[in-house]
Amino acid sequence: MRKFLLALSACAVMFSSSAFAEPVTLRAISAFPPNLEFTKQFQAFIDRVNRAGEGVVKIQFVGGPEVIPPQQQDTALRNGVFDMQMGPASYYNGIVPEADALFGANVGPVQAREDGAVELLNDIWRKKLNAQFIGWQSGGIPFYVYLTDPPKMSGKGVLDLTGIQLRSTPAYREWFEALGGNNVMLQTSEMFTAMERGVVRGLGWPAISFTDIGVHKFLKYRVAPPVWQLDLVIIMNGRKWDGLSPEAKQVIEKAAIEHEKATQRDFAAIRDRETKILEQSGIQTVEVDNPALHLKIAHDLVWDRLASRDPSNVEMLKSKLYKE
């Protein structure tokens, strides 16, 4: 009888421990300030995980660039300083050259996942960054060039940026140079002051989260067609991912699939809303004379750059992410 009671007591303790166990808490960071739509959408993903993962897994948002500069976040993630990150893959394409494949894609996240691209990307991210590729927060949103002065065209009918100072990042640098522009490398937080002081006369930016920064008040023209695609990804420290329970992994994976679909819908609505704001502020959209060549120059540059850095995965990635 005593043995039976002891066994019963042990079972009760085990049940009590599992029933009231604390969920695993993951610390997450964004490459962008909290007021930008990119971070707001990441917060929506976090909320989705926290609702579905109650009692199992929880994500705590710890902040943005004010915590760790964006270009240092990949190293911090790899070293386990925090567990999850959302930001442009192009910020660490020196470590993972295949980040360019997302930037140069013309296939959206939902189709990319269906075609097996996410599985391939995850294999690459694990090998090169010790990171689990969770999701691609793109929404199919492309990039425009914005200018304060009327755009000029080259003899081939594409944008001519000769002599123009442009706010730039590693993602734009080679394209702006190919079009004759001068790159001024600035963080997002420095854009407003640079435009206000006339340090730069234009910039590249996606079709959303533009009015959040307020620089549209200095600009007059938007050059079309847009190129590329947002390369915002959600990634997680590989060791931390491996240590999660199967249930926690399932919660995060399901949330990522739902999030990719949601951002496609939400970003489209935001894009339409912001386009109206830009039009109301007097920004004119100017189509280049040769749109096909404009697109080809931009996309070929990205894929050629990837091939020169690491050709091992180029053809497979291009077959899944770029449809000619």
Rank of each mutant, 00 (worst) to 15 (best):
A31Q: 11
A89V: 13
S312A: 14
S189L: 15
L120R: 09
R48N: 13
A44W: 05
M14R: 03
V215E: 00
G140A: 04
A52G: 09
A21W: 00
F192M: 11
I234Y: 07
N79K: 14
E253D: 10
F61I: 07
R48L: 15
F32Y: 15
I257M: 12
L8P: 05
Q250M: 09
P225R: 03
I164C: 00
K276C: 06
R197P: 00
A12N: 01
K156N: 06
G204P: 03
L317P: 14
T25M: 07
Q187A: 15
T275F: 07
R173I: 12
G116A: 04
I134T: 00
A255C: 02
R2Y: 08
A89M: 15
I234S: 04
D310N: 15
T75P: 00
F45V: 01
L5K: 07
P291D: 11
F103G: 06
V314W: 09
M316D: 13
M153R: 05
R265L: 15
P34C: 03
L306T: 06
S245W: 06
G135Q: 03
K220R: 15
G163P: 05
L102Q: 05
D304M: 10
G155K: 07
V145H: 13
R27L: 13
Q137R: 06
A269E: 13
M195F: 14
Q41C: 09
L293F: 01
P226C: 03
L295D: 08
A101I: 10
R273Y: 08
A171V: 03
G63N: 09
E279N: 11
W303R: 01
Q41D: 12
V286E: 12
F143M: 12
V215K: 01
L8N: 11
Q284C: 02
L5W: 14
E279T: 05
E260L: 02
A117R: 05
E114T: 08
W175G: 01
K318S: 02
S16H: 09
V314T: 13
D47A: 15
I234K: 00
G204H: 02
Q43F: 09
N79Y: 09
A89D: 14
S138F: 11
S245T: 15
T263N: 10
G202P: 08
R173G: 08
V13D: 04
L244Q: 01
K127G: 06
V199A: 05
H294M: 06
G181P: 09
Q229T: 13
F15L: 14
E324S: 07
G157T: 05
F210L: 15
S90C: 08
Q60S: 14
L161G: 05
N182P: 02
G202S: 10
P88G: 12
D149P: 00
P225F: 04
A52N: 11
P109A: 15
R273Q: 12
Y221F: 15
G204W: 03
R201A: 13
E287S: 12
Q165C: 00
V215N: 04
A207Q: 06
A10R: 06
P69E: 07
I124H: 11
V145A: 13
L295N: 10
D83E: 14
L102F: 14
A255E: 01
F42P: 06
M86D: 08
P65G: 13
D83T: 13
W205R: 08
E253I: 12
A89N: 07
E196F: 07
